[in-house]
Design a protein around this nucleic acid. Structure first.
Length: 341
DNA sequence: AAGACGGGGAA
DNA sequence: TTCCCAGTCTT
């Protein structure tokens, strides 16, 4: 985008920011991790849970976690298995394991205080580029550049008439998001630069939350509510007649995959009070037989659902081995499988 | 750069 | 049924 010959259909960044921020003040959701009293730890936990998982499913689990483990120290002291049980059905349970390890690292290496600088946040388990920026911004008001799938979609539509962003973030997209910030963070995304005014910092931090919220509530991937959008009148995608996406989203297979088998196995381990015989977890007949003997309804249901999968015993064994390699399960000396101690 | 990794609700 | 979701880590 040349400053000498700006594309007339491309809206000005400051206009988009102002309108989206104003919309956010009126329409942003009152989520518990956005309240002023939310601690940096509670915000970090929310961000990990929200990776690939919608707000409605995260909120009840987050509330429970904050009651049980209000500080990194509380979670770090817990056995990993208990953490995995409390994670429940949020999905991608390796996140729970990484969050547990993250809490332990915060306690042992950072005196129990959630770090506020990007490089230190990035060094923690489970925290990547997005989450590091989100924690710095939402927990500490550091104007780091936050870029998630919502923001990439909003920016792509408003400024480039692109229906959908690519499957993963490019460096060009990151640099553009950085340039859209009202103040330009330096390379480290640090706010130490004295040139920031408090008004710039406030606008930057609101923009991070507001553009994400717009993508979640209005500028949705499917069936966007353009009639409710504060930038509809300047949106490049709207101006171009809402052209279709130029690539086909790669749908993830589910039925018959290792992920489905692993998920069912984790459900059995979560519902079981103690270790599960290896043959129950790894053979169809074992799971089916156990489902007929067990009295407890939730465990019986989990075993039945594991037995119903189309997976053969070779795939079951491979998945069990994978869970153990990932640290999501452990093999006892009696040849049983359980959640990690 | 590509693939692995859960699960549920909406269209 | 298919698609989507406040991504991270490994190869």
């Amino acid at each position: 985008m040349s400053t000498h010959n700006p594309n007339p259909t491309m809206p000005s960044a400051s206009v988009v920011r102002a309108r989206v921020n104003e919309w956010f003040q009126a329409h942003g959701r009152d989520l518990p991790w956005r309240r002023p009293e939310a601690s940096p730890w509670s915000i970090l936990v929310s961000e990990i849970m929200l990776q690939q998982t919608p707000v409605v499913r995260v909120q009840p689990v987050w509330e429970e976690w904050m009651r049980r483990w209000p500080t990194p120290h509380d979670l770090a002291a817990e056995p990993a298995g208990e953490v995995l049980r409390a994670w429940g059905r949020l999905g991608y349970p390796r996140r729970a394991l990484r969050l547990h390890a993250c809490a332990q690292a915060i306690v042992t290496e950072h005196a129990g205080v959630v770090p506020r600088d990007l490089p230190t946040l990035l060094s923690l388990p489970g925290i990547g580029e997005y989450t590091a920026a989100a924690v710095a911004c939402f927990a500490y008001q550091v104007p780091a550049t936050v870029v998630d799938t919502n923001i990439r979609r909003v920016v792509g539509r408003a400024f480039h008439a692109k229906a959908l962003p690519g499957p993963s973030m490019t460096r060009a997209q990151y640099r553009e998001a950085q340039a859209l910030m009202p103040a330009h963070p330096n390379e480290a995304g640090d706010a130490a630069d004295a040139s920031f005014t408090s008004a710039e910092v406030a606008e930057a931090n609101t923009w991070n939350a507001a553009s994400m919220e717009l993508g979640a509530l209005v500028c949705t991937a499917r069936d966007p509510r353009c009639g409710e959008c504060p930038v509809e009148s300047v949106c490049a995608w709207v101006a171009a007649g809402k052209p279709a996406a130029d690539y086909v989203p790669r749908g993830q297979a589910w039925h018959g995959t290792d992920r489905q088998v692993r998920g069912r196995m984790m459900a059995v381990l979560r519902e079981s009070d103690g270790p599960v015989p290896y043959g129950v977890l790894v053979t169809r007949d074992g799971a089916e037989g156990a489902a007929q003997e067990v009295a407890e309804a939730h465990l019986r249901s989990a075993l039945a659902q594991l037995a119903l999968l189309g997976a053969d015993d070779a795939q079951r064994a491979s998945c069990a081995r994978g869970l153990i390699e990932d640290g999501l399960a452990v093999l006892t000396t009696y040849g049983e499988v359980s959640l990690p101690g």
